[in-house]
Simulated scan of single mutants.
Amino acid sequence: MSRTRFVLIQPSHAGNVGAAARAMKVMGFDDLVLVQPRWDDVLERDETLERASGATDVLRQARAVDTLDAALSGVSYVMGTVMTPRDFGPPTYAPREHLASVAPTGQGVAFLFGSERYGMRNEDVYRCHAALRIPVSPDYGSLNLAAAIQVIAYEWRQALGGFDLPPVPAPERADAAAVAGMLRHWEQALVDIGFLDPAAPKKLMPRLNQLFNRAQPTPEEIHILRGVAKAMAEAAKKPKP
């Protein structure tokens, strides 16, 4: 039984088929079925391949069928994407809310997407166990087919546990002695340029100390800051014109 299938009903734009394959692949899905596509050779058309942007393996194993029955073979739970809930149709949910409850069941699922021109037909919606409505702006709710597939694929992947991102190595932090040495360098430079009065320093240096402790500079940044202090001191020594 296929774990996850994406079904496009009567897709009319070859580019959307390629973009759908790309959207699926980045979320780790590869079972794509087209029901009565406009083009018999849609899986090999130039626009399809271009928009797939490397997801050609998904296209190679995708298949076109004549009926929705054939597309849903081996699937036990069907969800259709709709903008408007249908009278007498299945209950309508936001994807995140519903998919979190579906994921633990272990069922083979299919997501149905209607034609770009008129969306899903009522008879196709009635075949579904649930309808999914993506929350969008009430002022403009028109989603491109591939964009809708990307949203649903992302939400389903998250419901299944998501992908672990590679750990980001923590940057090396300068040690306390390096920060203290840099601050002494800056203190002298600030005196040299007349910004700091050593007779009345107030709380300037403790404040700078706290600032750099919060910033947690790296050794390279300490080197840059020392270079700035050196340049300030040298500029202060130059005779004024």
Rank of each mutant, 00 (worst) to 15 (best):
L49P: 01
L49Q: 04
E50T: 11
R51A: 14
A52F: 04
A52V: 04
S53R: 13
S53P: 04
G54W: 03
G54H: 02
G54A: 03
A55V: 00
A55Q: 01
A55W: 00
A55F: 01
T56W: 00
D57T: 05
V58P: 01
V58W: 02
L59E: 00
L59F: 01
R63H: 10
R63E: 05
V65P: 05
D66E: 15
T67H: 12
T67E: 10
T67W: 11
T67F: 08
L68W: 14
D69E: 14
A70N: 06
A71Q: 04
A71G: 07
A71R: 00
S73T: 14
S73W: 09
G74Q: 08
G74R: 05
S76Y: 04
Y77M: 03
V78L: 05
M79H: 04
T81I: 05
T81G: 04
V82E: 09
V82W: 12
V82N: 05
M83T: 14
T84W: 15
P85W: 11
D87P: 03
F88M: 15
F88D: 15
G89H: 03
P90D: 10
A94E: 15
R96P: 06
R96E: 14
E97L: 11
H98P: 09
H98K: 15
A100E: 15
A100R: 11
S101L: 14
S101I: 06
S101C: 09
V102A: 10
A103H: 05
G106C: 12
Q107C: 05
Q107V: 04
G108A: 15
V109R: 06
V109I: 15
A110L: 02
A110H: 01
F113C: 02
F113P: 01
G114K: 00
E116W: 06
Y118M: 06
G119S: 06
G119R: 01
M120L: 15
D124S: 14
V125C: 10
R127F: 08
R127I: 07
H129M: 07
A130Y: 08
A131F: 10
A131D: 12
R133D: 10
R133G: 10
I134E: 02
P135D: 08
P135N: 07
P135G: 09
D139Y: 13
D139T: 09
D139M: 08
D139Q: 12
D139N: 12
G141H: 13
L143C: 07
L143W: 06
L145W: 11
L145Y: 11
L145R: 04
A146R: 01
A146V: 06
I149E: 08
I149Q: 07
Q150R: 09
Q150F: 13
V151I: 15
V151H: 06
A153G: 04
E155L: 04
W156N: 06
W156S: 09
R157S: 10
A159V: 06
G161P: 02
G161W: 04
G161V: 05
G161F: 09
G162C: 07
G162H: 07
G162I: 03
